[in-house]
Amino acid sequence: MTRVTVKVDGSSYTDDVEPRTLLVHYLREQLGKTGTVVGCDTGNCGACTVHLDGRSVKACSVLAVQADGHEVTTIEGLATNGQLHPMQQAFHENHALQCGYCTPGMIMQSIDLLAENPDPTEDQIRLGLEGNLCRCTGYQNIVRAVKAAAGGAK
């Protein structure tokens, strides 16, 4: 067991974890942050995407011990004072989700995408979301949502 201290969605946690524990399992099983989900075992689907020190990472490809001393934001920590994050709002407004399983990862990745490139073209959005699979939406409304959020940020 290794002791880690991680700040997740604004609260600080100190826990003993097995060295092999993936960040996503630490979040889901030890902290109860079940908003972040697992969709694959090869790092391909992006369903587990969270922010580590403000940048998106696939939480299934990071060990919990690697997050020691760092700050993690999950889908559950995005809204502030009951106000949805503009990207959450944009996903809702643009019907960018159906079953919603990919949605937490998709939203976290989309926020990162706009942080990198605040005014992306449609192709840049599609490329930026390449590591996040959605089986329901055909992506069109996701792209639309990201565009809308970019417009709103300007």
């Binding site: 889901r28 079940t34 908003g35 889908i75 989700l97």
Partner: peptide
């Protein structure tokens, strides 16, 4: 109509079986 279900799905307030 914007969907009712979205409120929980976009905030991670979901109940998947694995949860």
């Amino acid at each position: 109509r914007k969907r009712k279900e979205d409120a929980r799905l976009i905030t991670g307030r979901t109940r998947w079986t694995d949860n």
